[in-house]
Amino acid sequence: MKNALIATALVAAIGLLAGCSSQGNDSLGNPAAGEQLANTKGAATGQSCIDCHGAGGNAPIDATYPKLGGQYRDYLVHALQMYRSGDRSNALMSQQARDLTDEQIRDLAAYFASQPTQLRDLSPH
């Protein structure tokens, strides 16, 4: 009896997880939607994410611009939210992020996090 209840609970949990993942745009973001958004020119600046950060976020046009490909999704969400709110200051990024919705931020973060990484540790060894 106890094993049957556990088995039923596991089947229900797996069903819920499968249902969530099949929607494609959950709280973790949708990489495909993020890719489309990353290639869309923003009204505020006339630039897209890719224009400055390069293909897959790994080829910035300026050495001072960060590589985004492979970056932690949570970090990217937090950074974009901070630019949007003005708590993190950068004239270009604040304008780019100003009108992004929470969903768009999650989608962009999911896209860049899914890209191959060229990030490296800059700390002295």
Rank of each mutant, 00 (worst) to 15 (best):
T117M: 01
S48G: 07
A38I: 13
R120K: 15
V77N: 00
G34K: 07
A91M: 07
L10F: 08
N3S: 12
V77Y: 02
G57R: 01
L16T: 03
S89C: 02
D26T: 15
D107C: 05
A97E: 11
L92A: 13
R106S: 05
K2I: 12
P66W: 09
K67M: 11
D87M: 01
K2G: 06
N25I: 01
A59V: 13
R73G: 02
L92T: 15
A63V: 15
G24Q: 10
G42K: 00
K67D: 03
G86K: 02
N39M: 11
Q71K: 04
N3P: 13
C20N: 10
Y65G: 00
D62Y: 03
A110F: 05
L17K: 00
D74P: 05
A43S: 11
H53K: 07
Q95C: 03
T45L: 12
Q23W: 11
P31M: 01
G57Y: 02
A4H: 03
T45E: 11
Y111D: 02
D87Q: 09
A12F: 08
Y72I: 12
N90D: 15
I105D: 09
A7C: 12
R84K: 15
E103L: 09
Q115E: 05
S48N: 08
S22K: 07
N90Q: 13
D87S: 11
A63C: 01
S94F: 04
V77A: 00
A79I: 15
S85C: 06
S94M: 13
A97C: 08
G19H: 00
N90F: 13
S22Q: 12
D26A: 12
A110V: 05
I105E: 06
H78V: 05
I61N: 11
L108N: 04
A97W: 09
A44E: 14
Y111N: 02
Q115S: 04
A43N: 05
A97V: 13
Q47M: 14
L37H: 04
I61Q: 09
A110Q: 05
D107K: 04
Q23L: 14
N58V: 06
A12Y: 01
D62N: 14
D74H: 09
A113P: 11
G54N: 05
R73I: 04
A91Y: 02
T64P: 03
D87G: 10
L28S: 11
N25H: 12
Q81A: 08
P66D: 02
L108G: 06
L5V: 11
S85R: 01
S85Q: 09
Q104A: 05
A43F: 04
M93T: 12
S114M: 10
H53V: 15
E35Y: 01
T64F: 11
R73N: 10
L100M: 07
Q118C: 00
R88T: 12
T64W: 06
A32M: 10
Q47A: 12
H53D: 09
V11S: 08
T8M: 04
R88C: 11
S27P: 00
L17C: 08
A7L: 15
A97P: 10
K41I: 10
Y75I: 08
D102Y: 07
